[in-house]
Design a protein around this nucleic acid. Structure first.
Lengths: 206, 206
DNA sequence: TATTATACTGTATATATATTCAGTATTTAT
DNA sequence: ATAAATACTGAATATATATACAGTATAATA
C-alpha cells in the first residue's frame, strides 16, 4: 500500500462518510459537491489515484461502483446473518424458508465453533442445563457428536434438543435436563433417527 | 413492519448478498440477472413493495440508491468490543482495567437494549432463571430498574446478580433463582446499596 | 363481486453517471 | 532538466440506470 496524500485521504474519507450516511457509494458529482470541486474530473482523477494505490476498487462502467478495500473492521465486517429456526415438528427440512422466523446479524467467530443457525427453544425440558423457553441455541450442523453433548436430534418427525448418550451401537438415549421429563430411548433399528447438529452456544434476549 | 412475501425476501437477500460481494447495491438489471427475472420492472415493483413495507429505502433518481433499513450492516450495526467483567467482590470500580478478563466483539444492537459490558457469572444462585456458572450476562448500566428485573447490585463491597423486589422505600429484597439460596434483604438506611445495572441478555459459549 | 396486492414480460425514454479529451499549474522524483 | 505525479477547471458524450407505460395472470380481500 503506497503513501496517501492529504487530498486523497479527504476523498477516501468522503466515500466512507457518504457510505455510512446513505448506504451506497457516491458518484463523482457527489464527491465534488461534498468537497467543493467544480469538475467531476477532479473526483475521477483522485479515484483513479486511490485505485492505483490499492485503497479502493472501481467497477468499470458501473455507477457508484466504488468499494473501499481492506475495510474488515468497518463496513464489511465478519458479521453474517444467521437464521432463527423454530423447533419444528413435522419433518420439513430444517432450513426451509417457511421455518425461518427472522435473522440475527452476528460475528462468525462469536462462539467457540462456527455454527449454522439459531434454534428457538420450546418447552423447559433442558432447564437444568440453563436452557429456557425462547432461548436461542447456536446450532452447528454436524454428525460429529460425543456423549454428553447437547444435540439437536430428529426421531421420526419430532425434533428435540437433549443430552446425547449412546448406550450401544443400536441404542441411543436422549436425556433431558429436567426431572419432570423422561429419558428418550431410541432403537436405531426400528426408528428413524438423525442427529441434526449440536449446540455450541446460547443467546438469550430479554 | 408489515409481512414480507417469499419473493420479496429473495429480493431483499439478493440486495444484501450483492452488497456483501461488491460493496455497493445492485441495479434493477443486476437483481434480474441474479434472480432470473426478464424485465427490470419485476425488480422495480418488488423494490417498491419492500420500500412500502419499510424494509428498504430508495433514493429517488439515484442509481443503485437502495439501502436496507434496520439491518444496516453498514452504518449503525458496527461491531464493538465489549469488556467481560468477573463478578468482583472488593468495591473496585466495575469497569476498572484490572477487572476486564477479555473482550468480545459484538454488534451494538445485538440485544433488545444497548448494553455496556458482559458480566461473567460465578455460582448458581440464578440457575432457575437459566443463568449458569460462567454465563456472560449483558449488563446495561442504568438505575431505571423495575421489580422483577434481573439486576446487578452492590451491597457494601459485594457484587451480586439477583431479581429485584423493592418492598418499601427503605427495604429492597434481592431474590435468587435457586432454592438453596436465601433472599437478601437490604436496609437502605444502614447499608451501602447501589444498582450497577440490569441484565438485558445472556450469552453462553460452550 | 369488485378491488387490491402480488408477480411477472416487454418496450421505451429521460436522465444520471462514468469517462474521455483539452487545458493550466504546482510539486516531486530521476 | 525532464518526466511523472498531483491538483484542479470545463466541456462533451456514450451508456448505464431508474422509471413510466402497456399488458397478462393469479391469489387475497372486502
Amino acid at each position: 500500500m503506497k503513501e496517501i496524500t492529504s487530498q486523497q485521504q479527504r476523498v477516501l474519507d468522503c466515500i466512507q462518510i457518504y457510505l455510512n450516511k446513505t448506504g451506497f457509494p457516491p458518484t463523482r458529482a457527489d464527491i465534488c459537491r461534498e468537497l467543493g470541486f467544480k469538475s467531476p474530473n477532479s473526483a475521477e482523477t483522485h479515484l483513479r489515484a486511490l485505485e492505483k494505490k490499492g485503497f479502493i476498487s472501481i467497477e468499470s462502467g458501473a455507477s457508484r461502483g466504488i468499494s473501499i478495500i481492506g475495510n474488515s473492521d468497518l463496513s464489511s465486517n465478519m458479521d453474517n446473518n444467521y437464521p432463527v429456526i423454530g423447533l419444528v415438528a413435522a419433518g420439513s427440512p430444517t432450513l426451509a424458508e417457511e421455518n425461518i422466523e427472522n435473522k440475527i446479524s452476528c460475528p462468525d467467530d462469536f462462539f467457540s465453533s462456527s455454527f449454522d443457525y439459531f434454534l428457538k427453544v420450546k418447552g423447559l425440558s433442558m432447564k437444568d442445563a440453563g436452557i429456557m423457553e425462547d432461548d436461542l441455541v447456536a446450532v452447528k450442523k454436524t454428525h460429529d457428536v460425543k456423549n454428553g453433548d447437547i444435540v439437536i436430534a430428529r426421531i421420526d418427525d419430532e425434533v428435540t434438543i437433549k443430552f446425547l448418550n449412546r448406550k450401544s451401537p443400536k441404542i441411543v438415549e436422549l436425556e433431558p435436563a429436567n426431572d419432570d421429563f423422561q429419558n428418550i430411548i431410541v432403537d436405531l433399528e426400528h426408528e428413524d433417527f438423525t442427529i441434526e447438529g449440536k449446540s455450541v452456544g446460547l443467546l438469550r434476549r430479554n
